[in-house]
C-alpha cells in the first residue's frame, strides 16, 4: 500500500481525467468539484486515515470510470450555460 505523494497525485490526475470525460455538464462539473474538494479536505491526513482516504478514492475512481462509460452512452441536450 503506497501513500507516496507521487501515487496520490497520480490518483488525483486519474480522477480528474475521468471527471472531465463526462459529456453531461452537470455531472462533469459536479465530479470535478467533488474530486478537488475531497482531495483538498484530506490533504493533511496522516497514517491510517490517509490510507483509508486513498482506498476510498481508488474505489471512487472505479465508480467514476464506470459511470463515465455508462453516462456517455446517452445523449444529453446542452445547457444554456455551455458553449455549443
Amino acid at each position: 500500500m503506497t501513500t507516496s505523494p507521487q501515487a496520490v497525485r497520480s490518483l488525483y490526475r486519474s480522477m480528474l481525467r475521468e471527471a472531465r470525460g463526462f459529456t453531461n455538464y452537470n455531472f462533469r462539473n459536479y465530479f470535478i468539484r467533488r474530486t478537488r474538494d475531497s482531495f483538498r479536505e484530506n490533504a493533511n491526513l496522516k497514517g491510517e486515515d490517509a490510507i483509508k482516504a486513498i482506498n476510498e478514492a481508488k474505489n471512487d475512481l472505479k465508480i467514476l470510470h464506470r459511470q463515465n462509460v455508462i453516462s456517455n452512452m446517452y445523449d444529453f441536450d446542452k445547457l444554456v450555460v455551455e458553449k455549443v
Binding site: 507521487q6 497525485r9 497520480s10 488525483y12 490526475r13 480528474l16 481525467r17 472531465r20 478537488r36 482531495f39 483538498r40 490533504a43
Partner: peptide
C-alpha cells in the same frame, strides 16, 4: 493539487496524456 489540476486541463486542451513519471 492545483498544478496537477492544471496538467489535466492541459491534457484536455491538447488531447495528450502526461505519463505518470513525467507528470
Amino acid at each position: 493539487l492545483d498544478y496537477n489540476d492544471a496538467l489535466v486541463a492541459l491534457e484536455e486542451e491538447f488531447d495528450v496524456v502526461f505519463d505518470d513519471a513525467v507528470a
